[in-house]
């Protein structure tokens, strides 16, 4: 065994040179092949194939880029703000034609945006928008309309209630998170303005996870009395699954309530088909990835772009849940 072990270092030394050469050469070769690509674009993402959303987001993004003649260089900061900031420095130094930014931590991207601006590199945002005060530093945003998603979810609940007085409880995302705030506002604003027969009895954060949501739902059902609740809204499919479990734990049939959420994920879609979840709003990761490139292309080619390129908030209920057009992606 000792003898075999001493063989490794020698092999290791040879391996290091090989590794380095192959790593840099593989990708380096692409960059020299500039004839097919018209534009160089860096995409600074906080996730990739390490997350379900990113796994379907990336291929759609790459396919669109190939189609439009854009050479993409993609980084994944794994939601570490420092890594993304450093990736941003690298991107600025490489002087690409444009940077697509999916903020890992929204509050920390201002220096990156300023640096890109100083270098004359346009930036677009994808999936998660930058803070309102930073909007002037980007050319546009493409991705889910989080306010519109909340509104779409409210519309479905309103349709299902059909004018009858309905008391509901609400489970929100992580406090302070911009997506959580926007979805909540979209939902609550619509209810307050256009659907006054619906009353929100209680609301609590479920922190985007199933366990917290189940506990929050359970507490609210106890405090307001489960018999008084005719509906539940949760800000995403993962949390709604927790709320449904809370109902089942009390022996309440979820299909007897009006329950809506947002996502149409591989978790949420079957719940709609089974009837436990009345409706959800489709967030398409492939649309997201594809249109990040579309927006970038439009900026690069000088086409007029809107401030926001919003993903359509397609409502998914039992009627259309099995349609291929809304097949869950993540």
């Amino acid at each position: 065994m000792r003898n075999t072990r001493t063989m490794f270092p020698a092999a290791g030394l040879l391996a290091v040179a090989g590794l380095l050469l192959s790593g840099c050469a593989g990708a380096g070769g692409d960059s020299s092949d500039g004839s097919a690509s018209t534009y160089n674009v860096y995409a600074l993402l906080p996730q990739g194939t390490d997350q379900p959303y990113g796994t379907t987001y990336l291929p759609a993004m790459q396919a669109k880029a190939d189609e439009l003649g854009i050479k993409l260089t993609i980084t994944n900061s794994k939601y570490d703000a420092d890594t993304q900031a450093s990736d941003c420095e690298v991107a600025v130094a490489a002087q690409p034609d444009l940077i697509i930014l999916w903020p890992a931590v929204g509050d920390t991207v201002r220096p990156c945006l300023e640096a890109a601006k100083a270098a004359g590199i346009p930036v677009t945002a994808t999936n998660s928008d930058v803070n309102p005060e930073d909007k002037s530093l980007i050319k546009g945003y493409s991705g889910p309309d989080t306010y519109g998603q909340g509104q779409a979810s409210a519309e479905m609940m309103c349709d299902a209630a059909a004018g009858a007085p309905t008391n509901i409880i609400v489970i929100n995302g992580l406090t302070g998170n911009s997506t959580a705030i926007n979805r909540h506002d979209g939902f609550a604003d619509y209810i307050a303005k256009s659907c006054t027969n619906i009353t929100i009895l209680a609301e609590q954060p479920g922190n985007w996870n199933k366990d917290d949501s189940q506990i929050a739902a359970s507490e609210m059902l106890t405090s307001v009395g489960a018999e008084n609740v005719q509906g539940i809204y949760a800000a995403d499919d993962t949390m709604v699954a927790g709320a449904i479990d809370a109902l089942k734990a009390r022996g309440i049939d979820p299909s007897s309530l009006i329950i809506t959420s947002i996502g149409n994920t591989k978790l949420g879609n079957p719940l709609v088909i089974s009837g436990e979840l009345y409706g959800t709003v489709f967030q398409s990761s492939s649309w997201d990835g594809e249109n990040a490139v579309v927006l970038a292309y439009n900026v690069l080619t000088g086409k007029p772009v809107e401030e926001n390129l919003f993903m359509p908030s397609v409502k998914v209920t039992k009627d259309n849940a099995s349609d291929p057009s809304v097949a869950p992606e993540w």
């Binding site: 790593g23 840099c24 593989g26 990708a27 194939t49 993409l72 994944n76 990736d87 690298v90």
Partner: peptide
């Protein structure tokens, strides 16, 4: 930095 510039994925 070199690998990032070459577009090599984080993984």
């Amino acid at each position: 930095v070199a690998l990032t510039l070459s577009g090599v994925q984080t993984d």
